[in-house]
């Protein structure tokens, strides 16, 4: 029996922390609480999703999970901080498509495509391009014809520069060849933008189905691979003549660890994530909040994330960001 069990335990912890212990056993993982960092304020949609996700995730991991918030800089403050953290599997970030693939390509940030070990995707809502219900445009063709007839007259809005809402409109108008004929008006968040839409200041806006249903709006096209169940008459972007990769745009989010996470830990986390997404609790939450859950395991999410990174590079280029 060792005389200094505390000391040995302490040394063992230090050596693990320094990365000196050779094989970390996944069976021991997690031995302390896993922290999920939400890069936005408490009370936002990402925060609420993760707080509903955490208990199911903890159960599947057979450990404790805590959710913390670190807001600022459109989510980049948290991502920049976590990117240089130790990849021990105890600190994960819930990054959206914007935080992980768009912001690092438009700002000078201390993280990029290779800063992460993708764990799993949790949610993915397709985006739509829509107009006011009182708008004269009933189809995307009518809108394009009007834009061509009066270049520079029409304005599309966004919830801010470099957001998914801007890229949705950019994907549509760039894919249809009229991007230079429309103007962009950013707002501070989607609330003011929707008000601008209702007031007629802007004529086009792109966002998820949930947001669109909050107002009196008419969808023109959807950026998904198939038509949406609730909106069977709305054509997909592909049907409207928009070529890949601009024809699909999802507001997705998933868990990331700093790059270099051991494969066994990654797989344990990814498996638990899958179980959490499938859990009745989270399914019920998604039903109530109309969140579109979409699980991908570590390998599939890694491929998806990298494909998105380069596809969004084209969008960012088109947007002139």
């Amino acid at each position: 029996m060792p005389r200094f069990p505390g000391l040995i335990h302490c040394l063992a912890t230090v050596s693990v922390a320094l990365g000196m212990s050779a094989p970390t056993m996944a069976a021991d993982f997690p031995s302390k609480p896993v922290n999920i960092v939400v890069p936005f304020n408490a009370g936002g949609s990402h925060d609420l999703l993760m707080r509903a996700f955490a208990p199911a995730f903890a159960k599947a991991l057979d450990g404790n999970v805590i959710v913390s918030n670190m807001a600022g800089g459109s989510g980049t403050v948290a991502a920049s901080t976590l990117a240089h953290d130790t990849p021990d599997g105890y600190k994960l970030g819930y990054w959206s498509v914007t935080v992980s693939t768009i912001q690092p390509q438009i700002k000078d940030l201390p993280y990029g495509e290779d800063s992460w070990t993708p764990i799993c995707s949790v949610a993915a809502s397709p985006t739509l391009l829509f107009v006011n219900a009182k708008s004269p445009f009933h189809t995307i063709d009518e809108a394009v014809a009007a834009i061509k007839a009066q270049p520079g007259r029409y304005i599309y809005g966004s919830s801010g520069p470099g957001t998914i809402t801007q890229l949705a409109s950019v994907a549509a108008f760039s894919g249809l060849g009229v991007l230079k004929d429309v103007r962009h008006l950013p707002f501070q968040g989607s609330g003011p933008a929707l008000q601008g839409m209702a007031a007629g200041t802007i004529q086009f806006y792109g966002d998820t189905e949930l947001l669109m249903q909050g107002g009196d709006f008419r969808p023109l096209l959807t950026f998904s691979d198939t038509r949406l169940a609730d909106l069977p008459d709305v054509p997909t972007a592909r049907e409207a003549g928009i070529e890949p990769p601009l024809d699909q745009l999802y507001l997705w989010g998933g868990l990331f660890a700093p790059a270099g996470l051991a494969a066994d830990k990654r797989d344990a986390l990814s498996k638990a994530c899958g179980a959490a997404v499938a859990s009745p609790e989270l399914q019920a939450f998604a039903e109530r909040t109309r969140t579109v859950l979409h699980y991908r395991d570590a390998a599939a999410f890694d491929a998806f994330y990298r494909a998105q990174y380069s596809a969004n590079a084209k969008l960012i280029d088109a947007a002139g960001l």
Binding site: G189, G191, G214, G215, T289, R290
Partner: peptide, 29 residues
Amino acid sequence: PTMALGIPGDAVTAVMLATLTLHGVTPGI
């Protein structure tokens, strides 16, 4: 504007709308 249009008037009312969503009520017009 929060209750009549579903458009939050400030950061606090935005959190309230999120709460409504959690309780299965769609904020909006």
